[in-house]
Design a binder for these strands. Structure first.
Lengths: 216, 216
DNA sequence: AAATATCCTGACCTATGGGTCAGGTTTTGG
DNA sequence: CCAAAACCTGACCCATAGGTCAGGATATTT
């Protein structure tokens, strides 16, 4: 009763406070980093959007860099997921379209991940280099191997696994990274479901036909 | 003789001085903006790289924003070139691979253009919106019309012209925007000619086969 | 209920970077 | 050769943003 906070929202456990605040900060940071990039994003802005005083944000994350790294790490997990769901025993006519679909869904539903990731790489990946060379690379090699196996089984033409993957990544992520450009060119406020469907269809079609993968 | 400058490099005309300095400044700015992005790039850094005092850079460009806009405008021209070389009377089995080749060449030889452009769009295109909605859009519509004509002539399957163009842009530009990622994943210092060739071949193949374009 | 750990925050410090300016030098035009 | 125009620049100004800190509030433990 002595204090507005505790009277309105009844006592919260400390662990809850911490969890809630961290979540809010990370969410706000993610949005702002995606929107403005690392150096244009200020801690005050993050604090404001998170509904906390600046000093409180600094209480949880000693530096802006720490906060950014944390956001990055979380997003890399997101970015990498689904890749390992393609395996050698699946036929590419199922596995590839499914992966493309998942990447497109992510571009639609979580554009921030791809955008922050893109900006980081564009500027030399100063904070992500390590993880790219370890985590992502391991998964990359595995996936290339899967493609390779598919080729050996004559399930697809002998194309370069590495470059096929690069192509799938870039063309699907374009639907978040360059969505603004696309929508400007097509006279829309933003991309709608039809656009994502059209993109999905086109990319799947090009990959399947281009790799000589027989439809069932 | 009274001064080191004039004694070493004999007198330069004023217009030359201006031209040289502008060139140096724009070049340095381009490199730094591409490398670090807009807000991480300082005028002092640009000046240093251009071999001029900071105040001299500010003499030519009143503000950092002016300089950035100038760089952007120059790069947009670069970025857009070649698109208008595809016309309705050409067969796509020639025109498309040629365009893809040109985009790939640009990714290799002038990666800065694509990178600065990408960063600008990623962050909401605050300085480029106008030109996207006028210049680029005009060219975009024309090119889509060309694709449309090809489809009408049964030279290619009825795919979405807009999304095909998005796909070509994103997959070719990836060879500059995400070159770092690719090289890290493939254990190289940087992409070499073979990589660009492999990318070119793969993208061309996917586009041609995917769009059902008959090779001659 | 007292002691302790965690959380919170306004006020403050400092470095940096964009931008100004006054006074200089060099080039040009007459 | 002289005046005007163009060019140059070290020193300065100031707003901002990252980060510190001391002291207070709240929660937990004993």
């Amino acid at each position: 009763m002595s204090n507005a906070k505790t009277s309105i929202a009844k006592r919260r456990k400390m662990s809850d406070i911490r969890k809630d605040n961290l979540k809010q900060i990370l969410l706000s940071a993610e949005n702002l980093f995606a929107e403005r990039g690392y150096s244009s994003t200020t801690i005050s802005a993050i604090a404001l959007q998170a509904g906390l005083p600046k000093a409180n944000v600094l209480y949880y994350f000693k530096t802006k860099e720490t906060l950014y790294k944390e956001v990055l790490t979380q997003l890399l997990v997101l970015w990498m997921q689904h890749m390992d769901e393609m395996t050698s025993d699946q036929h590419p006519n199922e596995a590839l379209p499914r992966y493309i679909l998942q990447k497109m869904k992510q571009s639609k539903q979580q554009p921030n991940a791809s955008r922050i990731f893109a900006a980081e790489i564009l500027h030399g990946a100063p904070y992500l280099r390590e993880q790219l060379q370890t985590d992502l690379k391991a998964q990359f090699i595995k996936t290339c191997q899967v493609f390779h196996d598919w080729i050996a089984k004559k399930w697809m033409d002998p194309i370069s696994p590495e470059h096929l993957l690069f192509m799938i990544w870039s063309s699907t992520q374009a639907y978040s990274d360059f969505a603004l450009q696309s929508s400007l060119l097509m006279d829309k406020d933003e991309l709608d479901d039809n656009d994502f469907d059209a993109g999905l269809e086109l990319i799947s079609r090009l990959v399947l036909k281009g790799c000589g993968i027989n439809l069932v």
